[in-house]
Design a protein around this nucleic acid. Sequence first.
RNA 1: GCAUGCGUAGCUCAGCUGGAUAGAGCAUCGGUCUUCGAAACCGAAUGUCGUUGGUUCGAAUCCAACCGCGUGCGCCA
Length: 620
Amino acid sequence: MSASTSSPSVDPTAALDSALRTAIAAVTGLPVGESDPHIRPSGNPQFGDFQANFAMALAKKLGANPRQLATDVLARAQLTGIADKAEIAGPGFVNIHLASSALAAALDAFDSPALGITPATATYAVTVDLCGVNVAKQMHVGHLRATIIGDTIARVHERLGRKVWRENHLGDWGLPIAMTLAALRRAGTNLDSLTLDDLNRAYRAAQMEGRDDAAGMIAAQATRVGPHRIAELEAQNIGAALAQEDARATLVRLQSGDSQLVAEWQKIIDCTMKEVFETAAVLGVQLTDEHSRGESFFRERLGPAVEAFAKSGLGVEDDGAIVVRYPDRERPMLIRKRDGGFLYATTDLAACKFRVQDLKSDRVVYVVDARQRDHFKDVFDAIRMIGWNKLPDGTEAELIHVPFGSVLGADKKPLKTRSGENFTLKALLDEAIDRGIREVRARASDPNAPTAGMSDADLAAIGSAVGIAAVKYADLGSDVTRDYVFDLDRMVSFEGDTGPYLQYAHARMASILGKALDAAAHAPPRPTISVAEPAERQLALTLLRYPQIVREVAQHLDPSRLCAYLHGLATSYNGFYQQCPVLKCEDQALRASRLRLCAISKHVMKDGLGLLGITAPERM
RNA sequence: GCAUGCGUAGCUCAGCUGGAUAGAGCAUCGGUCUUCGAAACCGAAUGUCGUUGGUUCGAAUCCAACCGCGUGCGCCA
């Protein structure tokens, strides 16, 4: 039984909205639903705490004078106890100063374990497709995004009370894995002592070996290069053809359930996943074996999926293959090859159906590279066309692709997996942790530092948390859709708008509370809050926005909003810290009030960092 | 060619549902620690919001065209 009942006073915006909405409806005669006062936080303190921007648009619609309309509405509005002052400015902005008492009351109600977030009463779950590693391949910097964006989206939905399925849709089935397996068998590699490096090398070798240079052949003939070059290309094609033939044969045996091959295949998967789970643990991401449901899981569902499309008339034959066509575009989606084999899209159709209908999700989120936009558009449209987005009661599931941008090199070209010199995720994290630990140790060597005298293991734990926070915040902090240039120094920076900045603010909150504990152990548990100073008001207003921000992050699937919010919270707290003495405050009631502001700030910061999967050390 | 995404300060990026003087961080310059943690704070400087037009009380934001960069386009995943 959590104390999560949302009293209206938790949210001053809602109170303002309701009061003004009623007044607007009364003055204009419009229905309440169309009387939106357009309340938003003021950008500038001189314009009050909130502004209502309804007057200009509404006056135009009604042919009235906006300032007069605003005046009439304010005359009607019951703002007693909510706002101290509401004045009209410029063309008709309404600037509202919240009553300090209302702000204090709201904060008092907000100060609960739920922090104003009311649990959802949803019937259905949310599925988040994240990570998406390929078996036998090293995780690279791009996987960082698919993993931590997905993890944050999952955590935010969980925080809002939703059941979440984290689905790691591994690439564990198909020709590439068969090629790797075939190459390992040809080389006689002992699979019991396999490392991911071995595996990755075999994968790449298999890719190279199997690459068909038919395009080169055509080009060679077209440009009339000498017969020697053509013979060379022919030899390469024959080699590639043999390797591909071997891979295909291996795939057929694997898919038919050859027990020897299946056992070997499992070893490759175990080897890959061991490192994936280790990396997830280092990143503080909730991803374990129970979240792995790779392509192989859907193998029995591919045939029936294609049949369902064929039967419904949505899947039609084209040159021996089966495709789905769309009314609004030329590009079809291929779901079965001429040779009867299935494709990536087929697996996604089966997986999507499973997620909606078996996992009972009314929201299926795919955190996948932006380059797959068209692919997901095709898959989702096909799913809707055949009706697999419908739950038993007819609810239509939302199918959403969160298309994150590429991680680019300094040359602004994507860091590619096969480009040889790519930065593996493990290398990045090792470096970040190493720098974090060095930083923390260096600071702890100052005898006056709060961390002085801590054990080496504790310092290492803090340093690791700092390094990982820097990396995660750097990635989550900007719009996920955009490409970003990978810059190690910036990514593991500990100053400015960074993860450690937030952790530092949290550590200061913890510090001040820790010190107060000794002195005021018998202070009342919930002292009266007063918000008189501008810095206190600013902090209080920021704190109260938290539930709305969490809802927005879920709605827009955009973790960067939470990062921006927490940065703003840290900044507001720093301003408060600078201007309002807490422990040194003479007035005991005010001191208690300010300590409570510190405690609420710490609670929100820790909760918010938790949603980003960033730890909040008490000291650093 | 078709589709799709992006052009904001020297650099990296915010800018929400159109709202008042476009904001942060880094870098540069200057100031704050015997006083609640200086991973911090305060100040200075920095802009043709790609271009042109349109919509309107109001546009970085919406629409159109153009320029530039990127990405994707049937038998790979």
